[in-house]
Amino acid sequence: MDQLSIYGYVIGSGIMVVVFYSYIVYLYRSEKRGHKDYEKYGKIALDDEIDSKPVEKGLEPVKKNKE
């Protein structure tokens, strides 16, 4: 049982390291190739008046009904 959990931990950690690093690579690559722009989300904090234009539109229809 102990043996099993040791193998479990080692393999589990290995998988997680691989997944995590490939995600980092994926993030930076997709931005470099212009598929995605992550950094635009940083603007959410700067341009945060209630009537400023959202970086990505939220659930506008629901809102309209309420008003």
Partner: peptide
């Protein structure tokens, strides 16, 4: 993956 979660 993780980024998708931020919109959901």
């Amino acid at each position: 993956m993780f980024h998708w979660l931020e919109k959901n």
